[in-house]
């Protein structure tokens, strides 16, 4: 299923997409598979699986530390694709930084995504200006390159982005990096409004909009889903993993139970929105 088909399917059920992010290999590759399974049981629609990079400039301290710990535990690009391939029963997208894609070879990377059942790529340090070579590789493998729109994005840039976007557009809710915030950014509504207005004026089919950064609570998810097509939660998952993953089997079981329950509590808020 393509990402756009997934959004369509959800829409027919009167649901919005709940997208959950975890860093692959945090705290270990084996744990990632089990955590993903718990999220799937909890009802996650799209799993955003982070391939950790040594210098994640768009991420806040939570995801940065998860990346460092994953890399220390031996995560690498080969293992990442093995882990991703083993996760079934959910749409998967890969979030990573451009250098890792570049070093594997653009086409090879996208090919490996396809083999592992990953249907979309999010690259926070690849703006639309530099995206042509990767777009070409993505087109060969029917993989979506998900672009980002931020509160600072001008209408002119939005147009360029919407011209090339496929799958969905990742709407960054605030000026800043990833990480939990007490309340939802005021920038979300006006930003979504601006994008929709532009799309109407362009007379093109609308692309799904998913909002991320600073979303960690059920009420955030509901508020986002009232205006957008999906909500993305990342750091809040990492935090549960950090707090609950212990050496004992009991700890791990409790952590997985928490992850599943947390996913459920967020997914619930994507249903029957206005």
């Amino acid at each position: 299923m393509t990402l756009e088909e997934k959004f369509k399917e959800l829409k027919e059920r009167n649901e919005k997409a709940f997208i959950g992010f975890i860093t692959a290999g945090h705290p270990s590759a084996e744990d990632t598979s089990e955590i993903a399974l718990a999220m799937i049981k909890g009802g996650v629609d799209i799993l955003e699986l982070g391939l950790p990079f040594s210098d994640p400039i768009a991420d806040g301290v939570t995801i940065q530390q998860a990346s460092e710990s994953s890399l220390r535990a031996g995560m690498n690009t080969d293992t990442y694709f093995d882990v991703a391939a083993g996760i079934k029963g959910v749409e998967k997208v890969c979030l990573t930084y451009y250098n890792l894609v570049l070093q594997r070879g653009l086409e090879q990377f996208v090919h490996d995504c396809e083999s592992a059942g990953i249907t979309g790529l999010i690259i926070p340090d690849l703006p639309v200006e530099e995206s042509k070579p990767l777009l070409k590789a993505c087109a060969m493998h029917e993989t979506d390159l998900v672009f980002i729109i931020a509160p600072t994005t001008t209408e002119k840039r939005m147009s360029k982005i919407l011209d090339l976007a496929s799958g969905f557009v990742y709407v960054v809710s605030l000026l800043g990096v990833t990480g939990e915030r007490a309340r939802l950014s005021d920038a979300v509504r006006p930003l979504i409004g601006r994008i929709k207005e532009l799309e109407l004026a362009r007379d093109r089919p609308q692309i799904p909009l998913a909002v991320g950064f600073g979303i960690s609570k059920p009420e955030h998810v509901r508020a986002v889903c009232e205006v957008a097509d999906g909500a993305i939660v990342g750091s809040a998952f990492i935090k549960i993993i950090e707090e609950r993953a212990g050496p004992e089997l009991e700890d791990r079981k409790a952590m997985l139970t928490d992850i599943e329950a947390f996913t459920k509590s967020l997914k619930r808020e994507t249903k029957n929105t206005r």
Partner: peptide, 20 residues
């Protein structure tokens, strides 16, 4: 015009920064 010296350089920045 893309800020490149041959193949080197460019603007690989997060979207939030691009307008700035």
């Amino acid at each position: 015009e893309h800020g490149k010296f041959g193949i080197f350089g460019g603007k690989f920045a997060p979207e939030v920064l691009m307008t700035t």
